[in-house]
Computed example of a mutant assay.
Amino acid sequence: MINRRTLIGGGAGLVLGGLAIPLFLGPGPHHDQSPGTVGPGCTPTGQGLRAQAVPRQEWVPALEAAARVAGIPAQFLAAQIEAESGWNPEAVSAAGARGLAQFMPGTWDQYGNGADPFDPVAGIRAQGRYLHDLRGRIAGITGQDPQRLVFAAYNAGPGTVLKYAGIPPFRETQSYVAKILDLAQRVYSAECAGTGPLELRPGKGAWVHPLPHSRLTSGYGPRPCPAGAACNPWTTFHFGLDFSTGRGRATGRGAMVVAPTALRITLVQELAGGYGSRIMARCLLEPGYIFDFHHFALGSMLVHPQQEIEAGTGLGIEGNTGNSTAAHLHFQVIKPESNDRQMIHADTIDPTPILVEKGIL
């Protein structure tokens, strides 16, 4: 029997037997206190837990002990607890998940060692044991960030992660993983604590979805070779996010793609192959990252190089040009030091955390 639960504060699916029922997970809470700054190369894999960010200091030793059991730094366990229960040891979800770590009764019977599910220390210990088991079940996947994979397995099921050989292309799972990694870096890591989302921290401002009323169809990272595409390093690792409205199935022309924030256009290319019709632009908010939009319908692009535009300005129509099997938008984020015209894939970073932070995913 597959257990299902709805988690307090947004909702995620607890998984057993490699299956889950995905639910929407909204963006995480924003923290106003800024204990430090994030250096340009900082990642959330440091080993230091920022103990003062944990609401009850008597929980810190349990977190550190559970982290040793799980083989995952303690700041990730703290971030997951915030995502699950908001640090409320009395939390009960609509589906019956209980306690700080939000275990369903059947899973608690397996990992709770006979303790009270509302005992916060017991919940943290069970969390460590469960994450340890998940790590073991996905150990065959190599060359990827184990923290991302284990939380993807927690949300979508280890069987699903094995099937996709990485984080599956589910909006809810990708948002859940991004939220935990963001909190681990921004709030709970002594070495990386700062004010911005994971990896990409443009300045404040209003953001909109680059393809409104679309769904995420492929996430950043390794993936199986898409059906109908030639298998090569560019198709088996996805260097951005794909969004589709489904409106271009018959004609190859979908909905309007818009600027997610204020941009300066740097490149407009009308191409039938490769990336297809393409627009590149620099974010006008610090620190000036480059955004790359691919696969516009031929003849649909509405902007020109050096033009400065506001959030929500139309860029062109979602299309199927280039190496594409259906009408969609491919959205990439590129490091600011990269050359606008000579971008290499090593310059890309995962756009998911910034879109989660801005409330888009």
Rank of each mutant, 00 (worst) to 15 (best):
N3T: 11
R4Y: 10
R4I: 13
L14D: 13
G26F: 03
H31Q: 14
H31G: 04
D32F: 10
G36V: 11
T37Y: 02
G39T: 14
P40T: 05
P44M: 08
T45W: 06
G48T: 10
R50Y: 14
A51E: 12
A51Y: 02
Q52V: 04
Q57P: 07
E58G: 13
V60F: 07
V60S: 14
L63A: 03
E64A: 02
A70C: 07
I72G: 06
I72S: 07
F76R: 11
L77S: 11
A78S: 06
Q80V: 03
E90Q: 15
V92M: 03
S93I: 09
A97H: 03
R98T: 09
G99D: 05
A101V: 01
G112F: 12
G112H: 12
A115Y: 11
D116L: 02
D116N: 08
D119S: 11
A122G: 05
G123D: 03
H132T: 13
D133S: 12
G136K: 15
I141T: 02
Q147Y: 15
K163W: 14
P168S: 12
F170K: 13
E172S: 14
E172L: 00
T173V: 10
V177K: 11
K179F: 15
K179E: 15
I180Q: 14
L181T: 11
L183G: 03
S189V: 14
T195A: 05
T195I: 05
L198E: 10
E199R: 14
L200F: 06
G203Q: 03
L211S: 09
S214N: 07
R215W: 09
L216M: 05
Y220W: 08
A229R: 13
A230V: 14
W234K: 11
G240K: 01
D242C: 00
R247M: 15
G254C: 08
M256I: 04
M256T: 06
V258F: 01
V258T: 08
T261P: 08
A262L: 05
L263H: 08
R264A: 04
R264C: 02
T266I: 14
L267C: 12
Q269M: 06
Q269I: 10
G273C: 09
L285Q: 13
I290Y: 07
F291W: 06
F293R: 00
H294K: 00
A297T: 07
P305I: 01
G316V: 03
G316W: 01
I317K: 11
G319D: 00
H328Y: 00
H328M: 00
L329N: 00
A346H: 13
D347P: 04
I349F: 06
D350E: 00
T352D: 04
L355V: 09
V356L: 07
K358N: 11
